[in-house]
């Protein structure tokens, strides 16, 4: 494992910790999209089915379990927690997730490397992860002033993707025969989706202003 991959994973881990801290410390999930969190849980569950039959390393196993449990935990907070659930604004978080999940499933059934249940679900999770942030970005755009921690969460999540791009470039240069086109193309699209957000995040940070996205 190279430094970019490790830094990417740590950034991903940190983003979730920031999100959980925000929810727990402020007892509020204002500005957090439940739809995106549910999509991520679906992504992790469909991708990490291999926990049941293949082992790569203790590191991988731990991280997979962490991602599944933490996104489940965020969803539990938003849906079930007595005070946090009252701060969830479902009227703003209206993205139709089936418009994302259905095309991803059709694509996974069409473009995959092996027509088996686990491989199609794995491919589905790669496609779905690429677009799962969209409900969150739409919600941020609707929120006039984005609170710092929510902004940081999305920034770290985008940062993790950017580091994975570097990881792939490193692997292409160092591992003969290494290729994974489905992952590369989806990952590049996923990172590109953050470009606009990055621009406004860095601008507000440089001007010392609160983040607000133009509508």
């Amino acid at each position: 494992m190279n430094i970019f991959r490790f830094a990417g994973d740590m950034t991903h881990l940190l983003s979730i910790i920031v999100l959980l801290l925000k929810i727990n410390a402020t007892k509020s999930c204002a500005g957090v999209s439940l739809k995106t969190q549910e999509l991520y849980l679906l992504v992790f569950v469909t991708r990490y089915l291999d926990l049941l039959y293949s082992y790569i390393s203790l590191y991988n196993t731990f991280m997979k379990l962490f991602f599944i449990c933490s996104s489940g935990c965020v969803i539990w907070y938003i849906r079930e927690h007595k005070t946090v659930s009252q701060t969830y604004d479902s009227a703003q978080d209206t993205f139709r997730v089936l418009f994302l999940a259905c095309p991803c499933m059709i694509l996974a059934l069409t473009v995959n490397h092996d027509f088996t249940v686990t491989e199609v679900l794995w491919t589905f999770s790669i496609y779905l992860e690429a677009v799962a942030i969209l409900p969150q970005l739409v919600l941020l755009q609707r929120t006039k002033n984005v609170d710092t921690l929510t902004g940081n969460y999305v920034f770290l999540l985008g940062g993790y993707r950017a580091l994975y791009l570097l990881n792939w470039i490193y692997r292409i240069l160092t591992e003969p025969g290494y290729r994974q086109w489905i992952v590369w193309i989806s990952g590049t699209i996923q990172t590109a989706i953050y470009c606009d957000f990055f621009y406004y995040y860095i601008k507000s940070w440089r001007n010392n202003e609160r983040l607000s996205l133009p509508s």
Binding site: R5, H12, F67, H113
Partner: peptide, 10 residues
């Protein structure tokens, strides 16, 4: 199809 590597990333 050429074989892709094992799914060793997260």
């Amino acid at each position: 199809y050429r074989e892709e590597p094992a799914h060793d990333e997260l």
